[in-house]
Design a protein around this nucleic acid. Structure first.
Lengths: 168, 168
DNA sequence: AGACAATCATTGACTAGTCAATTTTAGGGC
DNA sequence: GCCCTAAAATTGACTAGTCAATGATTGTCT
């Protein structure tokens, strides 16, 4: 016996303003938002073509830029070279892209959509575009105008890791 | 011979306004920002105590909330139950937290900081707080006021995955 | 020509996070 | 008491992304 009737123990969320109970606010919120967006994108992509997120990025980039090599993709899509390499392989095995070594510089691998890849892109694009529009529609015009500026500023601030060694 | 002098092939970034060459804009930007923030946090935490990000979240939460169980941590810190479980183990093995089974309900594991854990928290907190302040200082007052509202709105919009099956 | 540095790609190991299945335990009818 | 359901935690498999090391190739310098 003894010891309480435990009604599904609930911890209150610390109120954002006020005591600032944690340091993880802005960063935590952004991380949580990003996680949700990723999850949603994953679902959409899985339903409409069975693509993973980096696969979709590569395909979309190839569809609008034509032939590209791994380094170019990485620079524009913000993907790590390693991730690009693995994604190339997966897409090639599914027959969505074709890889070809550069004749003049045999280190470089050029990628291009196959017919299959292009038709998949054309069927997925409207779904992803609608999603993007729905996201932006959730904001007012003012907010839409500001959101990219805010992101840029934070990205710059995130870059100077000029934090002193621990004082203690 | 033959075949060009290849001056470090550069692909121009597609201009954000105008043709919208990709659908991945807002989401891509957020993902990139989040990646940068994570990277920076990792560096800071590694330097000042050797903690990983979820480990820091758990410690910060325990420091301000006292004893908590896994479910409570997960709800507030936004961590998956599995991740919390693994993080608990790692922190316990490093002697930073102590785990104890609830007497009344033996499914529940309560966690609390040890002395070692609390002193680590006290030494890391100012570093992380300074980082957070520096991030917020990069924004104007207007932007600061808006950023949380924007995040909330996007998070809500991200939740309705009411996307039709692929038309094709 | 030979040595050297830089570049593109590849690979493996790692962190952050999600999802699903399973285990253990508890509580509610009956 | 027994059966069923649900909750808390654990575990394994997976995706997204980063970092470092390596291999192959190329251009440059002497």
């Amino acid at each position: 016996m003894v010891q309480r009737a435990r009604p599904t123990q609930v911890y209150a969320l610390p109120e954002p303003e006020g005591g600032r109970p944690l340091q993880l606010f802005l960063t935590y919120r952004l991380a949580a938002l990003n996680a949700r967006l990723n999850r949603q994108a994953s679902v959409v992509l899985r339903r409409s073509g069975g693509l993973k997120i980096p696969e979709w990025r590569v395909i979309a980039l190839l569809a609008t830029h034509g032939v590209m090599n791994g380094r170019g993709i990485g620079a524009i899509a913000g993907l790590d070279a390693g991730l690009v390499s693995r994604t190339f392989r997966a897409l090639e095995q599914r027959g969505l892209i074709a890889l070809r070594r550069d004749e003049g510089d045999r280190r470089i691998a050029h990628a291009a959509l196959t017919e299959h890849g292009r038709s998949l892109f054309l069927s997925v694009r409207p779904v992803m575009a609608a999603r993007q529009d729905r996201l932006l529609a959730a904001l007012t015009a003012d907010e839409r105008a500001l959101v990219f500026r805010i992101i840029d500023k934070l990205a710059i601030a995130a870059d100077d890791v000029s934090v002193p060694e621990v004082p203690t």
